[in-house]
Design a binder for these strands. Structure first.
Lengths: 234, 234
DNA sequence: CGGGGAATTGATTCTCATCAAACCCAGTGG
DNA sequence: CCACTGGGTTTGATGAGAATCAATTCCCCG
């Protein structure tokens, strides 16, 4: 909404907390997240919130809009960042003209699908500790750190409350689970820096198998994103 | 696996419990479920199981295979039924040649996506009772009963254990939640027949909003399915 | 030097899991 | 025709994991 109020421009600098899409309003553009983190979420009337997917730099959100003209969840920036928008019509036209574009949309949709499928498993059947471990493993791979052992570290701008909304837990419990992973020697994180001391062990603890992310086909994924981005720049 | 062992034929009669896809083996076909119910699920080593999606008569599963060549979950029949298979190559060829087919695949993928997103919300933030209510509402709409009030009834071949695997609960607790809904007057089910006594109330109890199912665009959905089915029959 | 959001810690409560037993009922075979 | 069987359902008693409530501490920033 906010972002689209200036219809002519296509790149926006948005503040942390800015709402890109509201679940109750129609939306007619796809967003490409250049920098910053964002999330898709749904909320109940009484304040419970569930983040259904995290959007990392380079991610595209709102693909459903291409078909449905409406997203059933809201999208909000978790940090400040910059966003490119492409109108629904523009992508539809290009997809009709170029196989590559259509394929890119399908590919990214399928990838999102795989991630969501995995998340249902985590939320339904893993304990809080396992979910936490799985989450950190998934994040590291999505951010491009796919080493299977040794140590990995990266920065993560999320608050514990936001992590809680991803994992279906309370902030307090997230805190305790992080502590537990730290005392178990799997994690050595400070503030906003995640340090996975023992990748292999953390993966075991979280039942994490990286295959579903298809990170071994980075060419496909990144080329899909690049093609969609090019829609905007032409 | 089982089904594909006879490569030439394309319609199979399968027994309840038959495994159509195993998460650890590559798969190279899309399945169209003519009759019967099936499910996609993932399991841990120690026996926990989570059903990520239910496949109802008329549903298509395994679309991810078109892009990834591998599904990350298993698919199993919950009842006996009949299944049509279409090879990956065949659909890919047709999709390249006909817009309609490509669009159908994208549409169904997006719909699955919307359902998974919603399930994430249910598993993460709804109580057992709310999940149960939401599940029954979703089921009734997916089966074609989209009345918003009054009474609705349909037959459901699932055991309480299978429902538990959908909702991330234990069979015992599923039983108790059903009892609770019955004593609250929202439900009047016997054996395998679900009778929703008060649709509006059950929807409120489960925070259910039907929009995400896009049942109001049945033409799109069913025509997408029909087109894919036609791939097989030509 | 405050001020405020986030993180941490403790005490308590509640939801749901676990364990265990009884029951119901359809199908089978004597 | 009726005991036998076994999967599914129902019910009860107990326990564990996570939520809730409530302070306190830690930092970052003005």
């Amino acid at each position: 909404m906010l972002a689209l109020s200036v219809a002519s421009a296509s790149r926006f600098i948005v503040q942390s907390g800015a709402e890109l899409v509201n679940e109750n309003e129609p939306s007619s553009a796809v967003y490409f997240l250049e920098t910053g983190w964002a999330c898709q979420y749904m909320a109940t009337g009484d304040g419970r919130r569930q983040i259904s997917s995290l959007l990392l730099p380079g991610d595209i959100c709102n693909l459903d809009v291409l078909l449905f003209g409406q997203l059933n969840c809201s999208v909000r920036m978790l940090t400040s960042g910059s966003v490119l928008t492409v109108s629904r019509e523009r992508i539809a036209d290009l997809a009709a003209a170029h196989h590559g574009i259509a394929r890119a949309v399908t590919w990214l949709g399928a990838l999102e699908n795989a991630i969501l499928t995995r998340r249902t498993f985590c939320l339904g059947r893993l304990s809080a500790l396992e979910r936490m471990a799985h989450f950190l493993c998934e994040l590291s791979v999505r951010l491009g750190f796919s080493d299977e052992e040794g140590e990995t570290s990266f920065t993560m701008p999320l608050t514990q409350e936001q992590i809680a909304d991803v994992l279906g837990l309370t902030p307090v419990h997230v805190n305790r689970m992080l502590l537990q992973l730290r005392t178990a020697g799997l994690l050595a994180s400070t503030k906003r820096t995640v340090v996975i001391s023992d990748v292999a062990a953390l993966r075991r603890a979280g039942e994490f198998q990286p295959y579903y992310l298809h990170a071994s086909a980075p060419l496909e994924t990144s080329s899909a994103k690049r093609q969609l981005m090019a829609c905007d720049l032409r």
